[in-house]
Nucleic acid binder design. Structure first.
Ligand code: FES
Ligand code: FES
Lengths: 144, 144
DNA sequence: TTTATTTCGGATAATTTTATCCTATTTATA
DNA sequence: TATAAATAGGATAAAATTATCCGAAATAAA
């Protein structure tokens, strides 16, 4: 469904959000440990999130990654997925046609579109904030 | 969503179904041309479908791939997807946890599970027959 | 039985994704 | 200003996916 990079990116963003609520910046090392991901690869993904203005990075001593507290509620899963995996998952054809087109649909278009639209809606209506809360409440987990 | 291999596999199966209704066997070459896929790679995927008893192969002159007419209605998309991509798409965790587990869920579990279950339901209730019909009726297409 | 046809299957290559390593750059503080 | 701490980013490497090639095996028909 999502690429590994995207899975890491989502988890990393949640972890950064949690720490930003506590006014703490976090390092790629701390993130990778917490979410159980390869550190250097995770760092690359963080760069991508920074480029997309989803997280903020502060270089130098006492630096790290953070998200503006007031933004955490506004950031939606869809932004992260789009930043890392692009929007093929929202617009792409289920059978790989170059373009998903109502007027020239693939055999599964009608059925696939429903699923895809549900997914899109879900991602667009799920905020980083609520995911962070569920982790903090101990209701969900980053690793097995 | 699906791998390229799976996309080709689904399209190939539909094309074989159509031809089987007309009592014609088809070759990897004909399939690849029709569904716009690399021939040799498509042949590999066909082997996988044969191993999973989804399509039947007949070697030698006048051979080719076919599906028993009476089976076409019974074959569901889910069988093809499972044969090629496995069942990670039905059971796998959206954030890559080793195992999707209600009692130890990842942050997106609740929301992801709904989507995933919808997809599973759709795949399990979509038959090769109906997809073949929509192609034959000119209502859907294999290529752009 | 020979021949032409066709799938099967192993080996290999190309591409993409995932992952690692090392150095440059930035920045707060001493 | 010097130093230590941190992210940025380029160069590779490893692994997985996608794709190609070719000979072996099977089969129908001449
Ligand atoms: S054309 Fe294939 S999903 Fe829309
Ligand atoms: S645990 Fe992640 S989707 Fe169920």
């Amino acid at each position: 469904m999502f690429s590994k990079a995207c899975e890491y990116g989502i988890k990393a963003a949640i972890f950064i959000a949690i720490n930003s609520y506590e006014n703490r910046r976090v390092s790629p090392k701390a993130i990778a440990q917490e979410i159980n991901s390869p550190q250097a690869f995770t760092a690359k993904i963080l760069q991508e999130l920074v480029r997309n203005n989803i997280v903020n990075s502060v270089k130098g001593a006492y630096g790290g990654f953070e998200i503006e507290q007031t933004n955490i509620k506004n950031i939606k899963l869809s932004q992260i997925v789009k930043a890392i995996d692009g929007d093929k998952i929202y617009n792409g054809c289920g059978l790989g046609l170059e373009k998903c087109d109502e007027t020239h649909p693939c055999p599964v278009h009608d059925k696939f579109k429903d699923i895809r639209d549900n997914l899109k809606y879900m991602l667009e209506h799920t905020s980083l904030d609520e995911l962070a809360m569920s982790i903090q409440a101990g209701e969900s987990f980053f690793k097995t």
